[in-house]
Design a protein around this nucleic acid. Sequence first.
DNA 1: CGTGAACATGGACTTAGGTCCGAAGGGCGG
DNA 2: CCGCCCTTCGGACCTAAGTCCATGTTCACG
Lengths: 214, 214
Amino acid sequence: MTIRIILADDHPIFREGLVNSIEETGEFEVVGVGGSADEAVALAFQYKPDIALLDLSMPGNGITAAQRISDAGSAGAIAMLTVSEDSNDVTAAMQAGAMGYLLKGVSASELREVLGKIARGEAHVSPGLAAQMLRVMQNETKPPRQPIDELTKREEDILRGVAVGKSNKEIGSELNIQEKTVKHYMTIILGKLQARNRVEAALIAQEAWGKSQS
Amino acid sequence: MTIRIILADDHPIFREGLVNSIEETGEFEVVGVGGSADEAVALAFQYKPDIALLDLSMPGNGITAAQRISDAGSAGAIAMLTVSEDSNDVTAAMQAGAMGYLLKGVSASELREVLGKIARGEAHVSPGLAAQMLRVMQNETKPPRQPIDELTKREEDILRGVAVGKSNKEIGSELNIQEKTVKHYMTIILGKLQARNRVEAALIAQEAWGKSQS
DNA sequence: CGTGAACATGGACTTAGGTCCGAAGGGCGG
DNA sequence: CCGCCCTTCGGACCTAAGTCCATGTTCACG
């Protein structure tokens, strides 16, 4: 009983190497080969493979293909194949229904081993990537708290004006408050940001918020 | 008379596909296969191939390998193979002695055609990449002239102080000039940059010179 | 040699920025 | 109800920033 696989990758030479690597022990059979997301979805629908092995970055987007195949229930399992070690890609792939995520640098035997696991229902991510994902998830749950995050809504409104070089008078006019009030807020803002003057505050703002809208 | 080739790529599956693609018509013979820059250099030295086909981004850097093989005269010609369409990579590869630059998405027949040209002494870059390189080179010979580039040395000194939030007095002290002189220069700088105040000038400076040294 | 550019400074003055004290209204939570 | 925070504003005042007029020296170039 062979494990039936469809695969989709837009690099012909790699695809050929892949087919050979997968089939060389007779344990797996590649029943369909495509070069884009659309072809992958059609092949999955047509062949109902045990595993759909998809390139992450092919035309039409591998993750989109994974999502569509998963939604349609057209494959027993989905695995992604890519050079990307970006944990965002891994997360996105898993959320799209992939049971596995493999790097293109794997050897043929390792690839077959992982495919076997996936066919048995086990999820797989390269160990290095799994550790990286864990680190990223931990960092994301504890975003660093900057002084600029402690500003009130009004204070932020005013700093945004300062960050693009506007005078207190101009800011007051825009926000319909007195220049005097803007000054008052600036004193508070400078204190919170530990900035000595508005230039420093503007630079801090730009650093934190990205490019100013010049 | 077959064309003898060594190839180096750190992805085993791709490498296998590559060997098969190259050898399938009998016109080429892969005499050596490696996975890193060092292996490529050693193989070239050992086999003196007609063509060394190198992956740009393998361990030890494909461009470095190309340079070493070219310096040693160990191969008739060098060709790079990569996913990168970055024209800086193309330029670097060519400067390292590569006669060809191919994208990994090429078909097997196209690959063989290009290898044949290279073996005959013709250089080859994918047409799209060649056009992109031309555009980049044209842009580089005519760098856009920014107002900030029109500042005198002294004006720039002063703007650098302003760009990190320093007062005129502080800048004067650092540069051993009067605050009065700094003010004078600021008037000129603001005029040249068409900035209304020092905050705008600081933002322009940061935009042009990158991050301020906070 | 004459001229222009770059660098430096003074005077006088106005506007902008920032600080600190004070006051008040509204909303929210204990 | 009370305290706290947010928002808004006034007064008084001092320093910083910016402008414009003027002057002078040095250096490089035609």
